[in-house]
């Protein structure tokens, strides 16, 4: 045992700076987050209030709705946003001309640099029932315009599509890197056997990136209750607020009204706890299913 530890020492040296960093910049703040259970005082010690902040959050008449919204929006994003960059990477991989491929990649990752305020403006204008481009097309096809931004049935889909628009190109980069890491000899062998494009994709490329997909999926599960504050905050309006009000926007409003930041910290810890449970669950599930998890 000691011998093996001694053999491993260079690896611990490599890990050490990271460990120190995590303790300083992550675990100390987590310790400071004890203020979720306190009332902050400038003079003297903070007052311990236990779970008061949690019960405050949860006694609101709208809390259930907010929680349900968060879960629905997160689930929709997991289902419909998460796979898009994978398809995109596969598509881009099929573009043979390197120059063209780089051009496409450079173009579709641009929206990642726009903040949600700007993106919300773009979407609201594009989806306007009177003069938006999307509704112009719908009207041109002979249908009645749809007020996407104020329609209770469509607003969550607006969140899904704007998220895809903003992040699919950027996120596809990671999968593209995974594809690049696949051994080209596999493709050569497959070609020798007369495999076509479709077969190579399903037999070699996709299995090759499954570990990356699984890892990202499990990590994303951990952030399940973060349904996208900036996005919702900028896209919401009175007509549909009750459909897309999520934990983060809710806590933000309550915190603003009361000036209580212990409340926000309390919500953060709550989300973290749920996230931890979910990430461990997803890991175990994946391990049972595929023999591979995150750790």
């Amino acid at each position: 045992m000691f011998i093996s530890l001694r053999a491993w020492w260079p690896y611990y040296v490599m890990i050490l700076p990271g460990i120190i960093y995590f303790i300083l910049f992550h675990y100390l703040p987590i310790y400071e987050a004890k203020l979720a259970f306190e009332n902050f005082r400038i003079f003297g010690d903070n007052i311990w209030v236990g779970l008061d902040h949690y019960s405050r959050l949860m006694t609101s008449p709208v809390f259930m709705q907010v929680l349900i919204n968060t879960l629905i929006i997160s689930a929709m994003k997991m289902l419909f946003v998460f796979p898009v960059p994978i398809f995109l990477a596969l598509l881009i991989n099929e573009v043979r001309a390197t120059g063209l491929r780089k051009f496409i990649q450079s173009a579709i990752y641009l929206p990642h640099f726009l903040s949600w305020v700007v993106i919300a403006g773009i979407f609201i204008a594009a989806l306007s029932p009177s003069n938006g481009a999307v509704n112009d097309i719908i009207k041109g096809a002979g249908f009645a315009p749809i007020s996407f931004m104020t329609d209770a049935g469509s607003i969550r889909w607006v969140l899904v599509f704007s998220e895809i628009w903003r992040s699919a190109g950027w996120d596809s980069l990671l999968y593209f890197a995974a594809i690049m890491a696949i051994d080209p000899q596999l493709y050569e062998a497959a070609e020798m056997d007369g495999a076509n494009r479709w077969q190579k994709m399903t037999i070699i490329t996709i299995p090759g990136i499954v570990p990356t997909i699984a890892t990202l999926f499990i990590l994303n599960i951990g952030l399940f209750l973060n349904a996208g504050f900036d996005q919702v905050f900028n896209m919401t309006n009175d007509a549909i607020r009750d459909k897309i009000d999520i934990i983060d926007t809710y806590v933000y409003r309550i915190g603003l009204q009361t000036g209580q930041f212990s409340l926000a910290t309390a919500a953060g810890l709550f989300k973290g706890l749920i996230g931890l449970v979910m990430i461990v669950g997803a890991h175990n599930f994946s391990k049972k299913l595929t023999g591979k998890g995150v750790w």
């Binding site: 009175d238 309550i254 009204q257």
Partner: peptide, 24 residues
């Protein structure tokens, strides 16, 4: 008072949504 903050928020949001639904 701060302990009514959640009710202030819930009532105002309900009102705003209802106003839009009436007006539209």
């Amino acid at each position: 008072p701060a302990d009514l903050a959640v009710d202030v928020d819930a009532a105002e949001n309900f009102y705003r949504t209802a106003v839009y639904r009436f007006v539209s």
